[in-house]
Amino acid sequence: EAEIKAARERAIVPLEARMKQFKDMLLERGVSAFSTWEKELHKIVFDPRYLLLNPKERKQVFDQYVKTR
């Protein structure tokens, strides 16, 4: 159900806005820029903003977040 709702939101909200919300979530959840995606996943997986991006986009935004922190 959450994935269906997220898919609707992905269709409406522009990618750039969704990427910003995802980055904000990473900051708010205290995701370490010195860790790996796999180790940090448990901090963010239950946040509704996690589903704003598809899996490939999530990883790309995380990688970008790590490089710029």
Rank of each mutant, 00 (worst) to 15 (best):
P14V: 04
E57D: 10
K43Q: 04
P14I: 04
R10E: 12
E57A: 07
L26V: 01
Q64G: 09
V66F: 09
K59G: 09
E9R: 07
A11E: 12
R10F: 05
K56Y: 14
V31Q: 00
T68L: 11
V66L: 07
E3S: 09
K5S: 07
R29T: 10
V61D: 01
L51K: 08
L51C: 07
A2D: 06
A7V: 11
K20T: 08
Q21G: 05
Y65E: 03
R8T: 10
P14F: 04
I44P: 00
R10K: 14
R8V: 06
Q21E: 11
D63I: 04
V61G: 07
N54R: 11
M19A: 15
V66A: 09
D63A: 12
A7S: 09
Y65C: 04
A7P: 06
S32Y: 03
E57I: 05
L53C: 04
T36P: 13
V61P: 00
R10N: 14
M25G: 01
Y50Q: 01
Y65I: 03
K5Y: 05
Y50S: 02
G30Q: 09
D47F: 01
T36E: 07
F46Q: 15
I12V: 14
Y65M: 13
E16A: 10
L41Q: 15
L41Y: 07
V31E: 01
M25W: 00
V66C: 12
K56M: 08
L52N: 05
N54Y: 05
V13T: 07
R10I: 15
F46A: 15
V13H: 15
F46W: 13
S35N: 09
R58F: 01
E40G: 02
K67M: 12
A2G: 15
K67Y: 09
E3I: 12
V45Y: 06
K39T: 06
E57H: 06
L41F: 13
E40K: 01
A6D: 10
L53T: 00
L15D: 06
I12H: 08
E57Q: 15
H42K: 11
T36D: 06
R69H: 15
K20L: 03
G30F: 03
I12N: 10
V31P: 01
K59Q: 11
E9P: 07
M19W: 06
A7H: 11
G30Y: 02
L53Q: 00
R49N: 02
P48W: 06
S35M: 03
L41D: 04
D47Q: 02
E3P: 05
Y65R: 02
I44T: 07
F46H: 13
A11S: 12
K5M: 13
F22M: 00
S35Q: 07
E9H: 03
R8C: 02
I12R: 10
A17R: 11
E40H: 02
L15C: 04
M19E: 08
D47M: 00
A2N: 04
R49K: 03
A33C: 14
Q64N: 12
Y50H: 04
E38R: 06
D47P: 00
K67E: 14
F62I: 03
P48Q: 06
D24R: 07
L52E: 05
E40R: 01
K23R: 13
D63G: 11
T68D: 15
E40W: 01
A6S: 11
D63L: 06
G30R: 10
A11D: 10
Q60S: 13
E38Y: 03
I12F: 07
E9N: 12
P55E: 11
E16M: 05
A17T: 08
A11Y: 08
R49S: 03
D63V: 06
A7E: 10
M25L: 10
P48K: 12
I44V: 10
V61K: 01
K23E: 06
K39A: 11
I44Y: 05
Y50T: 03
I4D: 14
T36V: 08
W37S: 02
K59S: 11
K59F: 13
E57W: 10
P48N: 12
M19Q: 11
F34P: 07
R58D: 00
D63N: 15
T36S: 11
L27I: 11
R69C: 15
S32A: 12
F62A: 02
W37R: 02
L27N: 12
L41E: 12
V31T: 02
R10H: 09
R8M: 09
E16N: 15
A11K: 07
R18C: 04
E57Y: 13
R18S: 03
F46G: 15
T36Q: 07
I12Q: 07
V13M: 11
L15A: 10
A6L: 11
G30A: 08
L41M: 15
L51G: 11
E9I: 05
V13A: 12
F34T: 15
L52S: 07
D47Y: 00
K43M: 01
E16W: 06
Q64T: 12
R8S: 09
V31G: 00
P48A: 10
I4H: 08
I12T: 14
L15Y: 08
D24L: 11
A17Y: 09
N54V: 15
K5H: 04
K43S: 03
D47A: 01
P14G: 08
V45D: 15
T68Q: 13
F62K: 01
F62R: 01
R18P: 03
K59E: 15
W37I: 08
F34H: 12
E9K: 13
F34G: 13
L52F: 11
V45G: 06
R69A: 15
E57N: 12
Y50A: 02
A11T: 15
D47H: 01
V13E: 07
V31F: 02
A33Y: 06
F34D: 08
E28V: 04
F62H: 03
D63K: 13
A11N: 08
D24V: 11
L51V: 11
T68N: 14
G30I: 02
E16H: 11
A6W: 07
K39L: 09
F62G: 01
I44G: 02
D47I: 00
R8N: 05
L53H: 00
Y50R: 03
A7Q: 12
Q21L: 06
I44D: 01
R49C: 03
L51A: 12
E9Y: 05
A17F: 06
K67S: 15
R10D: 14
L27K: 15
E57T: 07
Y65N: 01
I4A: 03
E16F: 09
L53A: 01
K39I: 11
M25A: 06
Y50F: 14
I44A: 06
K23F: 14
L41K: 14
V31M: 02
P48V: 06
W37A: 03
V61W: 01
A33E: 14
K59P: 02
D47C: 02
V61M: 12
M19P: 01
Q64S: 11
Q60A: 12
D24G: 06
Y65T: 05
E9M: 10
S35R: 04
L52P: 03
K20M: 06
K39R: 11
V66T: 14
Y50E: 00
Q60M: 13
P48G: 08
K56C: 07
K23N: 09
T68K: 12
P14T: 09
A6H: 15
V61H: 03
V66D: 03
D63M: 08
K5D: 13
Y65V: 06
D24W: 05
T68H: 15
E1F: 06
E40L: 02
V61F: 03
V31R: 01
G30S: 08
I12P: 14
K67F: 14
A2T: 13
V45K: 13
H42D: 15
